[in-house]
């Protein structure tokens, strides 16, 4: 009995030393060395790909924002974002999805409402949006709630509204969207997309100049 207790204690001691040594290697040296490399070689990316406009930081090109006025291109819905519920001394952006299932009435209603709103908001005096034109990304919440992109179809759909509200020719805004449309990487990876923040920054500059 006594023998097996000392044996177990010795084994646990060895296990603890193994854990502490491997923690030193993988939990201290590795992340610190990588942070050094990252901060040295890829400073912008390592700190969140922040974008400045007029000398001020206006966000990250990777993190989608909510709350654009209708003068600007609208992002995807983000109904799954969380609210900071622990450590409330901060107001952290909490990523998340709705997790609603396709047959959930709540999701069906929210998609229908979003579709009606997209049609209503983007129809102008001489441009009527048909419901069948509205792409799926315009009426569904993304996985992170922070999707920085919209599909080129959704951007295209907003062109008339944005042009009218900013007093710009439709063709000019169309060109702007085209310039900000990213195709698939190497022609086959992912899906074509438009970064909403970058597009809106360019739009604001354009509107200010004209």
């Amino acid at each position: 009995m006594n023998n097996s207790v000392t044996h177990t204690a010795r084994l646990l001691g060895a296990a603890l030393r193994a854990l502490l040594l491997l923690t030193l290697v993988t939990g201290v040296i590795y992340p610190l060395a990588l942070t050094g490399i990252a901060q040295g070689l890829f400073h912008d990316q390592a700190n969140g790909s922040q974008i400045t406009a007029d000398g001020k930081v206006v966000g990250s090109s990777l993190i989608g924002q909510q709350g654009y006025s209708l003068d600007y291109f609208q992002p995807r819905p983000a109904n799954g974002l969380g609210t900071n519920s622990v450590n409330t001394q901060y107001k952290l952006l909490l990523s998340g999805a709705t997790n609603l299932s396709a047959d959930n009435e709540k999701l069906i209603k929210s998609v229908e409402a979003a579709k009606a709103r997209v049609v209503r908001e983007n129809s102008t005096a001489d441009y009527k949006v048909r419901p069948s034109q509205v792409p799926a990304d315009a009426v569904t919440s993304s996985a992170s709630g922070l999707d920085p992109d919209i599909s080129p179809q959704y951007a295209e759909l907003q062109v008339h509204r944005v042009a009218e509200r900013n007093g710009l020719p439709v063709a000019t805004v169309e060109k702007l969207v085209e310039d900000h449309t990213q195709g698939r990487t190497l022609g086959f990876m992912g899906e074509p997309r438009v970064n909403v923040l970058e597009l809106n920054i360019a739009l604001r500059e354009l509107a200010a100049r004209s």
């Binding site: 995807r76 799954g80 999805a97 709705t98 997790n99 609603l100 396709a102 047959d103 959930n104 999701l107 069906i108 929210s110 998609v111 229908e112 579709k115 069948s132 509205v134 792409p135 799926a136 990304d137 009426v139 569904t140 919440s141 993304s142 996985a143 992170s144 999707d147 992109d149 919209i150 599909s151 899906e191 997309r193």
Partner: peptide
């Protein structure tokens, strides 16, 4: 909802 939206994009990134 996916049928109404026109694609299975709920909970997916563009």
């Amino acid at each position: 909802a996916l049928q109404i939206a026109g694609g299975a994009m709920e909970g997916k990134e563009v």
